[in-house]
Amino acid sequence: MTYAGDVAALARKDLLLELRAKETLPSMLLFVIAALTIFHFALPRGTSHAAALGLLWAALIFTALLGLTRAFVAEREQGMFDALVLAPCDRSAIWLGKALAVLAFLVAAEVVALPAFAAFFSGVDGRTVAAVALADIGIATVGTLFGAMAVAGRARELLLPLLFLPMAIPIVAAGVGGYLWFLAGYDAIFAVLSWAAFEYVVAET
């Protein structure tokens, strides 16, 4: 159970950092509410529920992107990858700890965003909530891996959306339709792949 212990220690560290810095989550919350407000004015009066729901998914993806861009900032600024990579824990634990923290931020943002959406537009049904929850797992797992890639590059903030958005297209395509089995399959496939690949992204040896 040392693996679980490592993951817990690393995830706890990220939550603690956020608690101190208060940067990521407040930005995500403000962003998603602002986006929903913009959508209200962008959509013509009397738009169908389906159209509004589609925009909710767009808002959630871009909000997640905002959080993912910040995910490895502390590691990058302080050269922490060097220290973490040399530690004897399995490198995938670094990924899992970060992915869990990202997942927590996503869920926290959506706890506000979904009721706000229900109030601003039309109600949210259970299927949508389940789809969003499943989508979060896919976003957090793939996004954390690609976030680690993006911080290694020069373009950084610019690079992550380019890398991540094509991966998010299937999530939105299936999420809008409420295909839960597809989202669960997406999560399983890409979580395993990200878990196995992370070591190559952060370490040369």
């Binding site: 560290k13 603690l16 950092l17 502390a74 302080q78 220290a83 040399l86």
Partner: peptide
């Protein structure tokens, strides 16, 4: 696990 490396930056989290 028997190696220690201290780079240019102190490799510690600033907000901890």
């Amino acid at each position: 696990h028997t190696v220690g490396y201290l780079g240019h930056s102190p490799n510690v989290y600033r907000e901890l």
